[in-house]
Amino acid sequence: MIERHLLKLRARDEISDEEERAIRAVVARAEEVPADKVYIRHDVLLDTCTLLLDGIMCRYKDLRNGERQITELHVAGDFVDLHSFTLKRLDHDIMALTPCVVAIVPHERILELTERFPHLARVYWFGTNLDAAIHREWELSLGRRTAAARIAHLLCELFVRLGLVGLATNKGYDLPLTQTDLAECLGLTPVHVNRMLKELREQGLVEFASGHVDIRNWEGLQRIAEFSPSYLYLERRSR
């Protein structure tokens, strides 16, 4: 059930069999979440964390006029709110962008797990640091990258993150999001996203159609995005 989560952890560190058994034991139950459902609302007191097993979820904040900014996308294997363990409530909402399956992990079990295995406390600390690194890279995109580079960068990031958990081939990946979803990640309008996707397609870099991303020129796409996977900390080392 948590295979993708283990793939994600093991890409960055060694996880022993004993630690794996302990991680498997913290999951209380699995739940299905329909697409477009706001799964966790901000400022609600929480006593569980949510591990995404299948589908795509996002963290977002919005304004009174309905304008929404997605601040991170989550793929299978990610904890969507590991930070709720210390924060106890969120300053943002969490929504399912596609039909999702999640595993519920009570905070008290994370407490026991991290007390029993201090190494796993550091592994999960690393996890929240990684989310922060992704947020910083998105800040750079939102503040400074051109529209075309923003889209290219997001498509590069997802290629690497989905590949890590076995959800991408060397040619591309399924991404069942709408152009409106992408626009809300990128701080653009859907009309603008459509136009920029056409530009990237015509340059022979990438095609996004019918929920699938087809990487046509990986080198070129990284170049226009100024993408370097360094912020995803892909090296395996003891944490």
Binding site: T146, A147, L188, T189, P190, V191, H192, R195
Partner: peptide
């Protein structure tokens, strides 16, 4: 309204270039 927003976002991005 959405169409107007879309046009404005494209033009503002082009204008900054």
């Amino acid at each position: 309204d959405e169409a107007l927003k879309g046009i404005r976002s494209i033009i503002s991005s082009e204008a900054s270039g």
